[in-house]
Design a protein around this nucleic acid. Structure first.
Length: 334
DNA sequence: GATCCACAGGAAGGGTTGGGGG
DNA sequence: CCCCCAACCCTTCCTGTGGATC
């Protein structure tokens, strides 16, 4: 039944991107100078989740590396590598140029030096860039003359908010590429393409694809995960074709998996706070702290908890409400 | 309006970790 | 082998804010 399981995962970068011709063109144009060995135009890619921001960036950069000799690229997702040095280290590691530098303890200047000494142009793909704890990293990368930045974020305002004014003003000249949610028919094309690559013919009918697209509502990641789960379900029950019921039944677990895909990166205490809020939905700061103290073995100080909560907020897992009547924390549902 | 309270978040400092140099 | 360094984590201390109360 399954020919290429990767095709039904959100990380898969397909050979061909559907319905993003304009954006592919815009990004390619911004990076075109790299072919001639000069720096490209910095780019900020925005759009809601599941519209293919990361896939677009990786796809275009892969094509570019195929065409040009002296282009290296690195990818980092700031959700898993959110500090200055973690992110730089991850970028270099991904590009294959930094395996010998460990992420902790190495001065950030060493990573930057390494980039500066590259004898090629470097494309830095920085995903979920608004999560970055220290926007100094962007300043540092800016100052390296052979680095072209491709920043990916849901909302440009979140990104610009806590950047220092110098970087902010430089980002003003960056090229903006915005991706909208897919229309139903577009999403069907995308899901169908994944199915064609990933599964044996006849496993998934077009009706099933449409059902998944319906539920996903313009979000390709949801659609892909949903189909993946539905296939799994059918397979577990010994069937070789997937039904609409499989899709419907997989809905909850798929949505939850997507919402919680970042939970593994949480520290123990952060997870305690996260779980408390997931159970309760919404709590006042006082109640939250009280429950935390009951539940946590060797509870951390209030100051540390606030830091954890700030992290959860950045991950968009919770929301903090400060309108009158004290602070309340709210779980961001799915 | 003064004061109190709860809470946010910045700054400073100590402890830990792990590689590199003397 | 020991010490230093850099990042990181946690704590303490502190200032600021906004609502509640007198």
């Amino acid at each position: 039944v399954i020919r290429n399981a990767r095709a039904l995962t959100p990380d898969f970068v397909p050979e061909e991107l559907w319905h993003r011709d304009g954006q592919i063109g815009a990004l390619s144009a911004a990076l075109r100078p790299l072919v001639q060995g000069s720096r490209g135009t910095h780019v900020i890619i925005t759009g809601p989740s599941g519209v293919g921001k990361t896939t677009l960036a990786r796809h275009v950069v892969q094509e570019l590396e195929r065409k040009a000799f002296d282009v290296t690229s690195g990818y980092v997702n700031c959700i898993s590598d959110s500090t200055h040095s973690q992110a730089l280290s991850a970028l270099l590691r991904d590009s294959g140029r930094g395996a010998d530098l460990r992420p902790e303890g190495t001065p950030t200047s060493a990573f930057i030096d390494r980039l500066r000494r590259l004898d090629s142009q470097f494309v830095a793909l920085v995903d979920e860039v608004d999560i970055l704890e220290d926007p100094l990293m962007l300043s540092a990368l800016y100052d390296v003359s052979n680095v072209t930045l491709v920043l990916i974020t849901v909302n440009e305002d979140d990104l610009l908010a806590d950047l220092d004014s110098r970087v902010q003003s430089r980002l003003m000249s960056a090229q903006r590429i915005h991706l909208e949610k897919y229309h139903h028919a577009e999403l069907c094309d995308i899901l169908q393409a994944r199915v064609d690559v990933g599964l044996a013919p006849g496993t998934v009918s077009s009706l099933v694809v449409e059902r998944a697209a319906d539920i996903a509502a313009g979000d390709a990641r949801t659609g892909i995960v949903l189909l993946g789960r539905a296939v799994q379900r059918a397979q577990d029950e010994g069937r070789t074709s997937v039904t609409c019921a499989d899709v419907d039944e997989s809905r909850e677990s798929a949505l939850r998996a997507i919402h919680e895909r970042n939970v593994v990166t949480l520290s123990t205490h952060q997870r305690v706070l996260y779980e408390i809020l997931r159970e309760a939905g919404e709590l006042s700061a006082h109640e939250l702290h009280e429950r935390y103290e009951e539940l946590a073995g060797s509870p951390r100080s209030q100051r540390s908890r606030r830091r954890y909560l700030r992290g959860l907020e950045r991950y968009k897992m919770i929301r903090k409400l400060r309108s009158g009547g004290g602070t309340r924390y709210e779980f961001r549902g799915y």
